[in-house]
Simulated assay, not measured.
Amino acid sequence: MNLKQLSALLDLSQTTVSRALNGYPEVSEATRRRVLEAAHRHGYKPNSNARKLATGRAGSIGYVLPVGRNIDLDPHFVEFLSGLGEHALSREIDLSLTPAPYERESEAYHRIAASRSVDGVYLSSMRNDEQRIALVRELGIPFLAHGRALKPENGYAFVDIDNEGAFHDATRLLLQLGHQRLAFINGDTDFSFAVHRLDGVRRAMADRGLPVAKLQHHSAAMNEENGYRIANMLFRDADPAMRPTAVLSASMFTTLGIVRALNQLGLKMPDDVSVITHDDVFPFLKPESFSVPLSTTRSSIRAAGARICERLVDIISGAEREPVQEIWPVELIVRASTGPAPAEHRMVRRRPAEAAAAE
C-alpha cells in the first residue's frame, strides 16, 4: 500500500496523512491515531526518499561521536544508545553517527548543517563551559542536551538526573552511620555531572559541620583500572590513620576496581569500609551480583536514551516549543555494602557531665 492508497482509504489528503505519520503538531491527536492504526493494519511503510521530499526532513537524528587515541568506548554510551534506538525504531527515525576527534568537533557540526543529513542532534557529556550549545544554535540545528553545563545555565532544553541530590543523600547516609573520613572517587571534573556530584558531597558534609577539606577527592575517567589504582593509593599506600572508612564511587565500572583492590588487601565491606556507588542499571552488571551487594544511587541510562529521542523528535516536529529543562530524581538503594563506621573511628559526642562521670 502506498501513500495515495492509504489516503483514499482514510478519505484524507496525502498531505494530512504524511503530516500525521511524521508527527506534525497541527494534526489532531484523533486523526494521528486513526492514521497510525490504519498504516499498521494495512502494512503501510513510507518510502524514505519520498518522505524526505514531501516533508523536507531527513528522518534522522544525529550525534557527533568522539573518537581518538585517548577515548574508550564507554559502556554508559552503549546502554544509552540502546534506549535511544528502541524509541527511534518505534518512531521510524534513523540515527546518524558522525565520528570526530575533540579538536575537530566544530567541523563535524558544520558538515551536518551543510548536508542537512539530520533533522536535529543531541549533545552529551556536557562540559563545564559548554561551547556546542552556541554553535548548534548559530548553525540552526535543533538540539537537546543530555545533561547540563555549568555555563550557560539556562535557555536550552535538556534531560538530566539530579547528580547533586543523589550524592548529597548518599553522603548524608554515611555521615549518619558515623563515618568521618570519606573518600570520593569521582568522574572527570572537566564534565559538569562530576562537579554537581562533588557539590552534593560537600554540601552534605557542610550540613553536618564536617570540614570539606577532610574529603579525599579523586577525579579520573570512570573505569575499572582507575578505581583499582586509586583504591590502592587510599588503602595500601596511605598512613593507616588517614584511611577512609567510607568510599563514594561515581560509577559501577570504577567500583569493580575498588572492590578488586579491597579484596586483595583483605578489607571487608562494610566492616572495614562502606561503599556506595552510582548505578546506571546495567543488565550485565548488577549491584546485587557482587559478593557483598552494593548500595547505589540508581538511575536508568537506557530510559534516559528513550526520553532523549522522544523529546528531540518533538522538538524537531514543533510539538515541544519551549526549552524545557527536565531533571530526574535519583533513588538511593541501601544494601549490604554500607554499615556503621568502625568503632575506633566513630566520633562520640557527650555532654560535659557525661564526660566528667566517665573520668
Rank of each mutant, 00 (worst) to 15 (best):
M1I: 10
S7D: 00
L9F: 01
S13F: 07
Q14R: 10
A20Q: 08
G23L: 02
A30E: 13
A30F: 00
R32D: 00
R33F: 01
V35R: 03
A38Y: 01
K45H: 12
P46K: 01
N47R: 05
A50T: 07
L53H: 06
R57S: 04
I61C: 05
G62E: 13
Y63F: 12
L65G: 00
R69F: 05
I71V: 15
L73P: 04
F80L: 11
E92K: 09
I93H: 05
T98H: 07
T98L: 02
T98Y: 11
P101F: 09
P101W: 05
E103L: 00
H110Q: 02
R111C: 13
I112V: 08
V118W: 03
M126H: 10
D129Q: 14
E138N: 13
L139K: 05
L139R: 01
A145S: 15
N154H: 07
Y156D: 10
Y156T: 08
F158L: 06
D160R: 15
A170S: 11
L175Y: 01
L175H: 08
H179Q: 10
R181H: 05
L182M: 05
A183H: 11
G187P: 06
D188F: 10
D190E: 08
F191T: 15
A194H: 15
V195Y: 14
H196I: 01
L198W: 09
R203H: 15
M205D: 10
A206G: 10
A213N: 13
Q216F: 12
A220S: 08
E225P: 00
Y228N: 01
A231E: 03
M233E: 07
L234C: 03
D239I: 11
A241K: 10
S249I: 09
A250Y: 08
S251L: 08
M252K: 12
F253L: 11
T254D: 10
T255P: 12
L267M: 07
I276T: 02
I276S: 12
D280E: 15
F282L: 09
F284T: 06
K286A: 09
E288S: 09
F290D: 03
S291G: 10
T297N: 07
I301E: 06
A304V: 15
A304W: 04
R307S: 15
I308W: 12
C309Y: 00
R311H: 14
R311G: 06
V313H: 08
D314Q: 09
I315T: 02
G318L: 03
G318A: 01
A319F: 02
P323M: 10
E326C: 03
E331L: 04
V334I: 13
A341P: 11
H345E: 08
R346V: 00
E359S: 14
